[in-house]
Design a protein around this nucleic acid. Sequence first.
DNA 1: CCCATATCCTTGACTGCTCAAGTTCCACGC
DNA 2: GCGTGGAACTTGAGCAGTCAAGGATATGGG
Lengths: 147, 147
Amino acid sequence: MALSEALDVSLRLVRAQLALAKRFDNSLSGLHGVSLADFTMLLRLSQAPGGRMRRVDLAETLGLTASGVTRGLAPLERIGLVTREADARDGRVAHAALTETGRERLADMLATAERVAADLFAEPAWRNEDIGRLSALLTQLGGAGLR
Amino acid sequence: MALSEALDVSLRLVRAQLALAKRFDNSLSGLHGVSLADFTMLLRLSQAPGGRMRRVDLAETLGLTASGVTRGLAPLERIGLVTREADARDGRVAHAALTETGRERLADMLATAERVAADLFAEPAWRNEDIGRLSALLTQLGGAGLR
DNA sequence: CCCATATCCTTGACTGCTCAAGTTCCACGC
DNA sequence: GCGTGGAACTTGAGCAGTCAAGGATATGGG
């Protein structure tokens, strides 16, 4: 039973992500005690103006539900990398904000994540051009095809 | 803080997979009551000679642990899509085998999965050439860089 | 033959997410 | 001012996977 190339590439992508995520998870948890999901949360926070975001917006950019964010943020708050800040104008919203410690620890995590990523594309010697191509194709897929 | 392209594309891939998997999950569970993981298991089984595989080999090709396979297969056995078969020569190994029902149901699932995949690459009108390129790049990533 | 070691598989405890329900708060029409 | 609807968030229950430990069977060396 032959699969179409579209389905084949979809399954290949799922499989690749599984292995890739494991690599990041192993390095990050070994060296910093955080998961890839934790790291991604912190990174997204750091990219937001002021290092803070409404929790619901954080969920949106991460592709999680609001409750996923609540649960994921809890341990990061407990260990002091993130704080919860109330909104002055809207009593419903709570912001998640990187602490100074969070920013410092994130810098270390980022260094190891960069190393893992570099290793990943170094093994069969990727050309920069191909990394860019892959990036463009994934963006095309994620941008319009997925919602 | 600028990310390297290698790290950026890694995170993009993780994010794309999340959305993509949700799409497949929604269609498959809505129409057939199975998850994408279930579908993938059945599909891999169907690709093996005789529609049967040692459970440990199934784990390997799926990128799961043996215990993940045990847990994932259990409900499929309960609803009669898969059976457990003992090995005559080696008492330790158990095979998972597609039943006739499993084969029939899988054909339906495959049709909807194909439809989802086609939709995915139809929205911004992918060129066949680009799908092939993406496939090749993911293979390069999954083949050597990840294990 | 028997013991040591290794392989296959399952199970218990845990993690990280989901969905559904509930709480609190805002905004709007009257 | 006051209900009504909706948005932001949390919480309980459940599902899908992990790891670590354990049971059963195979294999190879004395």
